[in-house]
Design a protein around this nucleic acid. Sequence first.
DNA 1: GCAAAAGTGTTGTGTCTACACCCATGT
DNA 2: ACATGGGTGTAGACACAACACTTTTGC
Lengths: 233, 233
Amino acid sequence: MSRKPRPESTRPRPAHVTLAVVLQVREGRLQVLLWQRAREPFLGAWSLPGGYLEPRETLEQSIRRHLAVKVDVRELAHLEQLETLSDPNRNPLEWELATAYLGLVPADVDPAVPEDTTWHTVSRLPELAFDHRAITLAGRERLRAKLSYTNAGFALAQPVFTLSELREIYVAALGHEVSATNLQRVLLRRGVLEPTGDRREPGRSGGRPAALYRFRARRLEITDQFAVLRPPG
Amino acid sequence: MSRKPRPESTRPRPAHVTLAVVLQVREGRLQVLLWQRAREPFLGAWSLPGGYLEPRETLEQSIRRHLAVKVDVRELAHLEQLETLSDPNRNPLEWELATAYLGLVPADVDPAVPEDTTWHTVSRLPELAFDHRAITLAGRERLRAKLSYTNAGFALAQPVFTLSELREIYVAALGHEVSATNLQRVLLRRGVLEPTGDRREPGRSGGRPAALYRFRARRLEITDQFAVLRPPG
DNA sequence: GCAAAAGTGTTGTGTCTACACCCATGT
DNA sequence: ACATGGGTGTAGACACAACACTTTTGC
């Protein structure tokens, strides 16, 4: 079962890359930033942005560095680690581990991206390189879960928004209908949203002016701490 | 910002280890399996069990292999990835990434462990090597969360148990009081527990015989899928 | 006035906590 | 009988979904 110990200097080491599932709600759909590979393996296939880990940097610094080539890092409202993939055959050319991150971009920015990089609707992905399809879907699941029990919406919404706008973002991200009425009450009760006091004037077709809101915090917070088995008191 | 690309053959690669936070409820307290280091760095300090990743194995295979030296792997009722640590200074001697796992051992087994390995109460940890203290606490947090919205209890409980016994396990793991009354109702309503039909005869001091239960599933399942923002219907 | 959009009131349901009370056994 | 441990009944708090209704605007 246990193997003969070998000198550390000769122990083979895996290559290590960082990847990111960068999500944004665009045109009413949840989309992911994909990049067309310029070399083997999977030349020409769509894949998640990322690249090699360099000495003296953390995984998070690494993915931020690689993403900086694709999108302005200041536009990333949230970044968190998803998981580390390690199937020895995930890259046919070399032994390579990949640590995946989830990044969220607010709806109001349209980052300038390079020629080889475009947004793709998550529900209609093309064939992806490596295990990137599974990683992308895992990122979407993480987002959907966190929209329910944290204030994660702050990272997808514009700084200031109406409830209708926020509703469209939740619908796109969750993949099912959400009523503006109940969304408002849930998020206000939890203290996640606060009114700015301003209103949005209606368009040509009329309608009551909408109150404007913002997220109270711009960092991830758990807002529904314990579903059950709460501490007594 | 971007660096000069270098040939892959000369790119430095980090060492990679796997670690496990192995938790069990012992003597009414949540405990973690720690190992006393036999070499530098942190010689003599307590640390999480684990070791180097070998070629042709996944991270999960790696941690299972290393744990096999410490506890019979068949006694691990659940194993899941926690996170990958990457601070370049986390190991003072070399550049080393660590992928941490959470492992759970049912309360009825007392695994034979080597001389240099013992159980420690999580709420009273000694000084730990590297970043292992933070990892251990992260493992406990993951467990506490999953006890609330999944059937994770199956991995801490004996195969068959009374509600009093299950209650003690939850109290130890969650760190606060839990009433057997409400624990029973929550877990039965969700279909997580099922009665075996048998009863436990009372001890010398008398008392009503307790009904025996078991977990319906022995693999992790989400039992409280959406706290809020459920799909309509 | 009428359509459009936003927001409120209200009802019903399900899930949880807390606590009083009842049940089965040993001495 | 009474102590001990197990189990049930029930009331109240709360959070949520659903939907009817009202408000505020443009035309």
